[in-house]
Amino acid sequence: MRLSSKATTLLILAAVIAIAPVFFPSSYYFRVGSLIFVNGLAVTGLVILIGYAGQISLGHAGFAGIGAYACALAPVHLGLHPALAAVLGALLSAAIAYLVGRPILRLKGYYLAVTSLGFGILVSMVLSNEAQLTGGPDGMAVPELGLRAVLKAIGIDLSNTEFWYAFSGLVLVLGAWLALNLYHSPTGRALRALHGSEVAARTVGVDVAHYKLVAFVLSAIYASVSGSLLALQNKFITPDVAGFMHSIEMVTMTVLGGAGSVLGAILGAAILTTLPQVLTIFQEYEQLMLGLVMMLVMIFMREGLLPSITRRIRGRAE
């Protein structure tokens, strides 16, 4: 029996997440793992936007910032449970993405990239400057999610790093499942169609502006949830989460691994999350190495790492 590409992707992802801890020599690796999953989630959202719909956003960290600070602020000021605060953050991100995207996505061209860039900068400035609310550049504490205590009460005793590894891994698999469902659905086809040829998509009845907006809003929700997970596991958050560099990192991860493939983009997130940890010994050369890797991949593997490699393997097999 031939497995569908959706089942294969989910199986590989779940297996790697479940088996990897066997090889972890210390709890530090659980921490790196959960960071990969958090970034992987944001990047999966960008696969919908960049890979499916062919639109670029340079401000998605802004949504991650909204998700992160929702978890820090809503429990204190609104008395919400942190989990509900994350949902609130996601709804807020979706609403803002809708309001920002609606007028912009009617236009053709690079308007979304520029507008989202401005939006991201705006969010990080607000977070830095509203010091009495957000603690400014020094950041602020985030309350405990509390799920680990619940698990402990029913007999599942996980260390903090183990819990966040498992929990963000689970959320990532869920996020990947949704994105893969979308790929093979009428909505996913409409997105990929408008990516392939906007004029042809319109003539088969695709409301191009509407579907671009759908992709933008969905990817904003992914980024927001990713920001919430980061805030909750760090229990502390600074405006860097919404910074321009974080936006660029997200896009770089997506494109490096392969924007058209969920698994590829998550691989990109894994590489770019791990590399700085590995390269700390060469700290001065870290940026240099990253730049070099990016350039080489774009020159020799334009579709991104995973799609290029699988294509080469398949080509050899035939």
Binding site: L178, L182, R189, R192, V204, L218
Partner: peptide, 16 residues
């Protein structure tokens, strides 16, 4: 993809 108008439905149903 040419069937878009006949197959389109809610994004929610498509996601899940």
């Amino acid at each position: 993809a040419g069937h878009h108008l006949h197959e389109r439905g809610s994004v929610f149903a498509d996601l899940f």
